[in-house]
Design a protein around this nucleic acid. Structure first.
Length: 588
RNA sequence: GGCGAGGUAGCUCAGUGGUAGAGCAGGGGACUCAUAAGCCCUUGGUCGUUGGUUCAAAUCCAAUCCUCGCUACCA
């Protein structure tokens, strides 16, 4: 039976290039999961977009002396290109400054207000009289009350690491204009998390055995400590206005509005495909699986705050008053990927961006290595030497070489898939393993254990290499051409199966191998950047068109007699000297 | 400080009560279809430490040390 699978992927702040941490934390596992479910035949909706609001954007805009819009548009476009090129197959990758997102966020604000989950409270906030504006915490600097460090930030002291409230800082000053800010009273809307707490608690106690232990334990513990109201508005200029005339200077706080993107992007996608209600089956059908791929720093937002918002909204644009928005089915948060044993740091150049990596390496080589070291259970590391060695030893040596040796030998001696003779135990065993792999690898993928799934698939490739050594068709061909044909037939079936089994991980090389095997239909649909126009606004999005894809996640025989193309290697072997080159590049 | 996760072969990791595993790296060998890839054999671990429960503990319990993360605007 066809299932509805919502693949909801974390929204990157559009203030810098995507790096391998983004890929490892959320985007690559989400893409593997989406591709797998599409092959299974489920209805996948994979959405995300650039987070165009928030202080990281305005901070960078100030640094460069340009508008926040200019910053976010620049990086949004770079996100689109990088993700297209690395093959993250979003049905829609949009952004949060669209008319659609503004409207959905505002309507949700209204729903929560009507349902009694918002309240207004006065707060003391720093205000710059020079710039005539309220200042977010990140814009305040001053002396740390704990250690006396004079350049402590409003949210944390870089010297002693203590978390701060901007109001605690001594001698506060505005990072923006250098003036001394004054405290001013201001009113803000708060999400009544205390009122929503029992429902959130109940949600976190139901059927969570599939959740990763760190995610569920962390979340349950978080709620145990009690939830308190959280402001959802700020006095800033860059953001979504409230749907109330009474508060012209206020904007929705980015944490509140960005998570709404999962829903607004689903709605936007529905409009783009010409079926405006299509999103409802992912959001209202209780059998739909809504899976959120994020990094661990985002856990409370997706396991507590977003569910609280959804519970409070109850429903939006619904047809039936009994309908309720789906809560996350799972939030398989990843830990962090570090770079060679230390954290990423933009300022120290310890950073590998996706565009930079793609300029020198193939997408599947990058995808392979990142998958192998996905931080699924604990923090992991990207090491250049490990990247090169695993590319050469595993991707090229075990898998690429298997495909190439079988195809080139068969092409040379038969030119087509040979007709097999009677199959012996060894032949049947390998064919059975190829068939069984669809179950074992599929189970791992469905359970979001991506590293383990890849290990299972690679085990089949290793087994096929062993089979070839035992059969040695290069010896068989000298005495018994038919026996060699049988061996090659069996090996080809294994490769044919692997071209599907590995395709969620390695979509580009898998498509190439399919063509070499004489298949004419692609595994996946087409992906591209498109310009869309909505309510007078023109902007670019990444879209996936699934119509061409017809291949299924199942063992299928490669037909006897199918003629084969002269094969080209699937992957490039990398010179080990690159290790030193890359390390030297990072030192700069 | 509070909370969470992790500590298993040189490296990356799997293994939740029944004789310690995989891949890579190291050593040896046979082959030659293949991107000198692949295959076979092999070296290597007192499962962080201490104590307890049990016929039996990497696995359960307690204590302890170390690493990393989150702590409410950095995947």
């Amino acid at each position: 039976m066809t299932k509805k699978i919502l693949v909801a992927v974390a929204w990157p702040y559009a203030n810098g290039d995507l790096h391998i941490g983004h890929l490892a934390g959320a985007y690559l596992p989400a893409d593997i999961y989406a591709r797998y479910h599409r092959l299974v035949g489920n209805d996948v909706l994979m959405v995300s977009g650039s987070d165009s609001h928030g202080t990281p954007i305005t901070v960078r805009a100030d640094q460069e002396g340009v508008s926040p819009r200019e910053i976010f548009e620049r990086f949004h476009h770079r996100f689109l290109e990088a993700q297209r090129d690395i093959g993250i197959s979003y049905d829609l990758f949009t952004h949060t400054d669209t008319p659609n997102h503004h409207k959905v966020a505002q309507d949700i604000f209204t729903r929560l207000l009507e349902n009694g989950y918002l309240y207004v409270e006065k707060q003391q906030q720093y205000y710059s009289e020079l710039s005539q504006q309220f200042l977010p915490d990140r814009y305040i600097e001053g002396t740390c009350p704990h250690c006396g460090y004079t350049d402590a930030r409003g949210d944390q002291c870089d010297n002693c690491g203590r978390l701060l409230d901007a109001l605690e800082l001594k001698n506060p000053r505005s990072k923006r204009d250098g003036s001394t800010p004054v405290l001013r009273e201001t009113e803000h809307f708060f999400l009544d998390l205390a009122k929503l707490e029992p429902a959130v608690r109940a949600y976190l106690e139901r059927e969570k055995e599939e959740w990763r232990p760190n995610v569920i334990k962390f979340s349950q513990n978080y709620v145990k400590g009690g939830l308190k109201g959280r402001p959802i508005t700020r006095d800033i200029e860059w953001g979504i206005p409230l749907p109330l005339d009474k508060y012209p200077g206020k904007r929705l706080y980015v944490w509140f509005e960005a998570v709404i993107g999962y829903l607004s992007a689903s709605i936007e996608w529905s409009k783009l495909v010409g079926d405006p209600d299509a999103w409802k089956s992912w959001w209202y059908d209780p059998a739909a699986l809504d899976v959120y791929f994020i990094g661990k720093d985002n856990i409370p937002f997706h396991t507590i705050i977003w569910p609280a918002e959804l519970i409070g909204i109850e429903q939006l644009y619904a047809d039936d008053p009994a309908q309720r928005l789906n809560l996350p089915y799972d939030v398989p948060a990843n830990e962090f990927m570090n770079l060679a044993g230390a954290k990423f740091s933009k300022s120290h150049g310890r950073m590998i961006s996706v565009p930079d990596l793609l300029a020198r390496y193939d997408a599947d080589a990058i995808r392979y290595y990142i998958t192998v070291v996905l931080p699924e259970t604990s923090d992991s590391d990207f090491y250049w030497d490990d990247f090169i060695l695993r590319n050469n030893g595993e991707l090229v040596g075990v898998w690429g070489n298997l495909a190439h040796r079988v195809l080139s030998f068969t092409y040379k001696h038969f030119g087509a898939v040979p007709e097999p003779g009677a199959l012996a135990d060894a032949d049947l065993a390998l064919l059975a393993q190829a068939e069984a792999a669809f179950v074992t690898v599929g189970e791992r993928l469905a359970a979001r254990q991506f590293r383990a799934g890849l290990t299972e698939a690679m085990a089949l490739a290793r087994e096929a290499n062993r089979y070839l050594e035992i059969k040695s068709p290069w010896s068989q061909i000298k005495q018994d051409r038919a026996a060699a044909g049988t061996s090659l037939y069996v090996a080809l079936q294994a490769i044919n199966a692997l071209s599907v089994l590995l395709s969620p991980y390695l979509p580009f090389s898998s498509e190439q191998l399919r063509r070499d095997l004489g298949h004419t239909t692609p595994l996946f649909g087409a992906q591209g950047i498109e310009e869309v126009t909505a309510e007078g606004q023109v902007y670019s999005v990444l879209r996936y068109d699934p119509t061409l894809a017809t291949v299924r996640w199942a063992y299928e025989e490669l037909p006897i007699g199918r003629s084969l193309a002269k094969p080209a290697p699937l992957f490039k072997k990398l010179d080990e000297a690159l290790i030193e080159e890359e390390l030297a590049r990072m030192e700069k």
